[in-house]
Design a protein around this nucleic acid. Structure first.
Lengths: 160, 160
DNA sequence: TGTGAAAAAAACACGTG
DNA sequence: CACGTGTTTTTTTCACA
């Protein structure tokens, strides 16, 4: 999917909505200095064209007691049939795995995982991950302190 | 911030809104089997109590031409005064750094970074990161394939 | 494009159990 | 006090100029 064809107005709209998906059309139009009708039409177009993946509610991880977040590097056992496929299917069964990426480098996959506490995280690694037949090994990195955390993509590269 | 005091109705509301932040109150009430007024009041309460961090619009990374995403491990040079603080300030100046975490393990920080292409990512590493005086070294892992990617936290652990 | 009308939704007050 | 109902205000959506 190619970028371009985004005008400065569209970029301003996306920027504002990245910060707050529940802006009303009038609030949005004030923030981006466009008429409400123009805002409305542009947003509908952006939605249709697939620029907006989702309107998401971000729940506070701490508030719901998910005190542990970690990245887990996974190395697969290349034997057996289609271990990658089997692993992906397993990954989708675990809601505590928020992300799974095939990666370059030492390991095969990188997972972002949340848990209520270290004990439960350890259980996840030992009982859930290492028991998967195609998993050869895991290595985890626990996130200690959040210095920055946003879902907002930079859009300045789209300005010519 | 402690968890608990969340009733099954609240969990259903949060679950539905995590998938779609723009549900109307009536749509929400239908999905979670509550009256609209009850839904409305519960949601306002959840917002006040800090369970909702943000309503975010998730922009399609590919659509806006950010073809490269990577994790970057950063090791700091512990000399000089307060290198951690200086690093955090630097991190916040770069919009292409979406996340920055202090981590356990070999390195000190882990960044999530987006770029338009490998050349620009390489520039970011060489020119921007390695030129920072407190940065001793970086090691990057490029994300090749997205197998799973959600902002929705699991909430089933809150059910008694 | 903006303007205006119609429909839908949000926000709030009131009464009831 | 929590709940549903009804009212007012705001917002969305669409037709028209």
């Amino acid at each position: 999917m190619l970028a371009v064809q985004l005008e400065p107005q569209d970029i301003r709209i996306l920027t504002a909505l990245q910060a707050n998906a529940r802006l009303t059309n009038v609030e949005l139009s004030e923030q981006v200095n466009l008429s409400p009708s123009q805002c409305y039409r542009r947003l509908k177009r952006l939605e249709e064209q697939g620029f907006i993946k989702q309107y998401a509610t971000i729940v506070s991880r701490r508030a719901v007691g998910l005190d542990v977040m970690a990245f887990v590097s996974v190395t697969l056992d290349k034997h057996g049939e289609d271990p990658a496929r089997a692993f992906n299917e397993a990954v989708n069964r675990f809601p505590e795995i928020l992300e799974c990426w095939a990666v370059s480098g030492d390991s095969d996959y990188l997972l972002r995982v949340v848990s209520t506490d270290l004990r439960s995280f350890s259980n996840f690694l030992m009982r859930d991950m290492l028991s998967l037949p195609m998993v050869a090994g895991v290595k985890s990195t626990i996130l200690l302190e959040e210095e920055k955390n946003t879902t907002a993509l930079p859009l300045n590269h789209l300005r010519d």
